[in-house]
Design a protein around this nucleic acid. Structure first.
Lengths: 169, 169
DNA sequence: CAAGATTGATTCTTCAATCTTC
DNA sequence: GAAGATTGAAGAATCAATCTTG
């Protein structure tokens, strides 16, 4: 049964027979799937009064463990956004009360972003919700297939992770 | 060798041992990879004076084949954005001269968005560029592995494609 | 009333410039 | 001067409301 990407690839082969579009079989599915996931996650979080970008910041802090503090710079690497974006995000979430800012006693340039108790409550609920839904989503695959998929994705992801240390944002 | 997602998953297991975060092995890699791809594509198109969202619209029209006409509604399904977004996009690109709007003679509610000659020139160049780079990106995988990856992604994507007919945007 | 497209308000992201501290 | 964070302006995505035609 052909899917949307099969149709897309067939269309390219018809319109640009000079181009070998084989890479799209993987990368176009990947982009579309990521976009669908984003839309689905956003819809699920609306009920919790939570925006997707807020969830991304909260989970980074939650994962860090007690005392739930990271610098804006740490958060950049986790969320892959620019530094200006992160400042704005922290502003908003500080106003809501999910995070707070603290000066770093050792280095005056650095700020600590700390997850508050209410922020932790929200992110734990959202994470329960998310993992449950995403498990359903992967239910069409066997455990072995999921492991295969994870392994292949890791291989493609490798070059990107390596260059992360070098790039400013 | 552990990657960023291995670290992320390990952190969750430490902080939320009550949660089974196995789905993240796949879905977190997928999201991160999609984000990296987006950033890389954006950087590549900057040299061509092309924004990512413009590329998405142009390719949908180019793939459609002569006479390179689609309705805004058609473009929604291809690009997974809202109807308001698409109107704004077509506005911008019409101002640049890459597309034009035409009324549908048969149905007054419908608009045809047509790719112009200059739009076609731009999209063909960008597509050459994109496919070449993405082929390099997948070079770490063998042909068999790429086929495996495409197959597995297709399986996960299936439920989303099916519900596409039902949803408004 | 439904379908298709548009509009305007709001929100988020980005970029480049700036400020502070090392 | 470099690192880390912030600022403000500009651009794009979204939502809900609206307009037009079937």
């Amino acid at each position: 049964v052909p899917d949307q990407v099969d149709r897309l690839v067939a269309a390219w082969r018809r319109e640009r027979p000079d181009l070998d579009v084989e890479p799209l079989e993987v990368l176009s599915r990947l982009s579309r799937l990521a976009r669908h996931l984003e839309l689905a996650r956003r819809a699920a979080f609306v009920e919790l009064g939570l925006a997707l970008w807020q969830f991304d910041v909260l989970t980074a802090l939650r994962r860090a463990g007690p005392p739930y503090k990271l610098t804006p710079g740490d958060l950049l690497a986790d969320t892959l956004v620019s530094s200006g974006t992160m400042t704005h995000r922290v502003d908003q979430m500080e106003a809501i009360g999910w995070v707070s800012r603290q000066a770093d006693p050792a280095d005056g340039r650095v700020v600590r972003v700390r997850l508050t108790a209410s922020g932790r409550t929200v992110v734990d609920a959202a994470m329960d919700n998310l993992v449950a839904r995403e498990r359903r989503l992967l239910g069409t695959l066997t455990a072995a297939e999921r492991a295969d998929l994870a392994r292949l994705l890791r291989r493609v992801l490798e070059p990107f992770d390596e260059e992360l240390d070098a790039e400013p944002r």
